[in-house]
Computed example of a mutant assay.
Amino acid sequence: MEQPLYKRIQNDIRRRIQSGELQAGALIPSEKDLAQRYGVSQITSKNALNGLVEEGLLVRYRGKGTFVRELVIPEEPHLQSGAKKTIAIILPTMKTKIDQQLLDGLERYCADRGYDLLIRITRESQEEEYRAIKQFQERGVDGFIIFPVEQESYNNAILRLSLDRVPLVLVDRFLKEIKAYSVSSDNYAGVREAISSLLAAGHMRIAFLSPEITNSVTDERAKGFEAAFMEQGLPIDKTLWCMLDLETIAEGNGQREIVRFLSDQSDITAVFAVNAELARYAHYAIREIWKGAGNEPQLAAFDDPDLDGIPFIRQQLDDVSRRVVDLLSEQLSGTHEPRREVVPVQWIWPNDLDFT
């Protein structure tokens, strides 16, 4: 899908600020100048600037123009030098084993460094995520570890933290337009290896089950699937892709939709689900549709769905947690070198599993 014109203007301005071409306090070209430069209407250029002002990236002064916002470091008079650091951890859910393992690792490595923790579960609500960030800022926390909710765009409060250089590490997500600290599993390589293995085993008709692509995780996993086919010179049949919107999943209708979808795909030989929840729905659907006839498709998943004999991609969550806390500690010590760290994953075939 082609990027909206106002978004292109915004992204260019963000890149110029991030690269240092536009410093804090620099004057931004006028709406008229931007309209001429990008070949758009003045209304479009005005909307672009308005959006960046709302984000807090730019500031307008009547009669003077629009400027890059000066960096303001909030005062924390109640935090004395050398006092124990307080870290806010914001997670979208605690429903899965992955969520629980991740929080366990983060808590353990933070405790090793003597950090106090404040934890908030947003229940996949971007509004709650925004409120949590603001409330923790008001309490004067020293740093943030945030696993963003599954939404099409990142919370403006997260963007603001990154731009203001507040100690922050994003977990399992990364900002494409702004440099920020983040740690994620190797979603792309993991799915590419899994699908390549299925193809090597003779599975040419592979269904792909995923939430709609709204963030870097779902995007990378979809691209890993495509890469495996392209490397073999095989066509990608997207009629075999079942992309579930977030509302359908949140309302508990994911299983029903997967049953409906797979009922129309009698010729598939394998099903790949991008997370454990969808894998469990697919497992139910396969039993319901094929009824153990012996020709049911091979199911595979990203993350362990707790189903015997199902190959899956295993994340190294302890390594993810350790790296997150290391990057946060780096920032708390005064260093600011934003980067993304990617942790390798492991493709587990049934023969590698211990069922004893």
Rank of each mutant, 00 (worst) to 15 (best):
A300F: 12
Q315S: 13
I313E: 09
P74H: 01
R260L: 04
G65R: 01
V141R: 07
P167C: 10
A24K: 10
A189E: 15
G39F: 07
I158Y: 06
L91E: 04
F261V: 01
E337Q: 14
G233R: 01
G143M: 07
R340V: 12
R69W: 01
S182Q: 09
G143Y: 11
L163N: 10
A301F: 10
N253G: 03
E129I: 00
D219T: 12
E247S: 09
G65N: 02
I195A: 13
C242Q: 14
A111L: 08
V72H: 06
T96N: 02
S333Y: 04
D352W: 04
E341Q: 10
H203P: 14
S184V: 09
A157F: 05
R173A: 12
L246C: 05
D104E: 08
A250W: 04
P235W: 09
E296Y: 06
L246M: 13
Y109G: 02
R221V: 12
F147C: 04
E2G: 12
K176G: 05
A200L: 14
Q23A: 14
G25P: 09
P311F: 05
D318E: 15
G51E: 04
L103N: 02
D326C: 05
Q18H: 08
G143N: 06
S125F: 07
I286G: 00
K32Y: 13
I89P: 01
R323L: 12
I87G: 03
T66I: 10
G114H: 07
R260A: 13
I28S: 10
E54Y: 01
V183P: 13
V271M: 03
R62N: 03
E55N: 02
I313R: 08
H78P: 00
V171H: 11
E128Q: 13
L170N: 10
W241I: 05
R8H: 09
I195P: 00
K291D: 04
R339N: 09
A26M: 10
W347I: 14
G252E: 05
K32G: 03
Q255L: 02
I145G: 04
V320L: 14
D304P: 08
L22P: 11
K134Q: 14
E226P: 02
V320P: 09
A201R: 15
L58Q: 03
G82C: 02
C242L: 10
V345C: 11
A201K: 15
A222Q: 15
G224T: 12
